[in-house]
């Protein structure tokens, strides 16, 4: 076991536990306002302090983790669900028109500044978690398609795939039976990276008011609330900020650790 994997695993698990625990327990009601106790710095009662409405930041962080995980999870799911089959298909038809169309389509999506399009989508179809998920998810599709195809192409040239073809197996069956298990590591590592990027993107969209809407708590919106108060209550910015950094750091370390543990020569796309 390497150290990166352990630290990353612990940080990621911590966030998952916080999110799950929030369903049954939080120190305070995350949405209960308590004006007399507003803008408290971290203390024995309010571990992370309170915001300008006197809401408990610790509780809000716990519930906010839920939003982050849900958005990032579904967005990665969209990327894997559509990107991996497309990548497998493109690799199986290497050099053919299917490959060409899929890869050109990929390039085209990459040509759009992702955040701009996410903003456009959420702005036009309404702000909210669902549209944020779709906007982030769309940009995961080409990432997974590219990684899948990149991992699958060298495999198609390998002799065990030729042997399977000689054994009469079709492209679809070979893709599922031989290719997919051999690129699973690659996909797992890429998924952790996209997951961390999803959390950053969700935070950014919520920060500009296009992500999860009130009353759903979200780390990005907590930062937006903190902005005007940063000079008098810096903890309001520091707490959600550290939550995001530690989570993303944890996921990245987990990804790196997994990569080293699963296959030292694995290549992933990191943008």
């Amino acid at each position: 076991m390497n150290r990166t994997l352990i630290i990353g695993g612990i940080l990621s698990a911590l966030m998952l536990v916080a999110a799950l625990a929030s369903f049954v327990w939080t120190p305070f009601d995350h949405s209960a306002m308590n004006i007399p106790e507003r803008l408290q710095t971290p203390n024995g009662t309010h571990w992370f302090g309170t915001d300008h409405f006197g809401r408990d930041l610790f509780s809000m962080i716990m519930v906010g983790a839920r939003t982050s995980i849900a958005v990032a999870c579904v967005a990665v799911g969209i990327g894997i669900g559509l990107g991996v089959p497309l990548g497998l298909w493109a690799a199986a038809r290497q050099g053919g028109w299917v490959d060409e169309v899929i890869m050109r389509g990929n390039d085209l999506i990459f040509a759009f500044p992702s955040l701009v399009i996410a903003i456009l989508i959420t702005a036009i179809f309404g702000a909210g978690a669902i549209n944020a998920i779709i906007a982030i998810g769309i940009f995961n599709i080409p990432v997974f398609a590219r990684v899948t195809r990149g991992g699958a192409l060298p495999l198609w040239a390998r002799e065990f795939i030729l042997a399977a073809r000689v054994a009469g197996k079709g492209a679809a069956r070979i893709s599922v039976e031989h290719i997919l298990p051999n690129i699973a590591n690659l996909l797992i590592v890429q998924a952790t990276i996209q997951f961390s990027l999803g959390i950053l993107a969700e935070a950014a969209l919520s920060y500009v008011g296009l992500g999860a809407q009130p009353p759903t708590p979200s780390w990005g919106r907590m930062l937006a609330d903190a902005q005007t108060l940063v000079s008098i209550a810096p903890h309001m910015a520091l707490v959600p900020g550290f939550a995001i950094i530690l989570t993303v750091l944890g996921l990245n370390l987990l990804g790196d650790g997994l990569r080293d543990a699963l296959d030292p020569k694995l290549r992933v796309t990191r943008v």
Binding site: A204, I244, L249
Partner: peptide, 22 residues
């Protein structure tokens, strides 16, 4: 760099404002 990658730039911007402007 591992930490740098994890920092949301708009949060970092707020912190810079807090330190260098305020």
């Amino acid at each position: 760099t591992q930490i740098g990658v994890a920092i949301p730039n708009f949060w970092f911007a707020m912190i810079l404002v807090l330190i260098f402007a305020i």
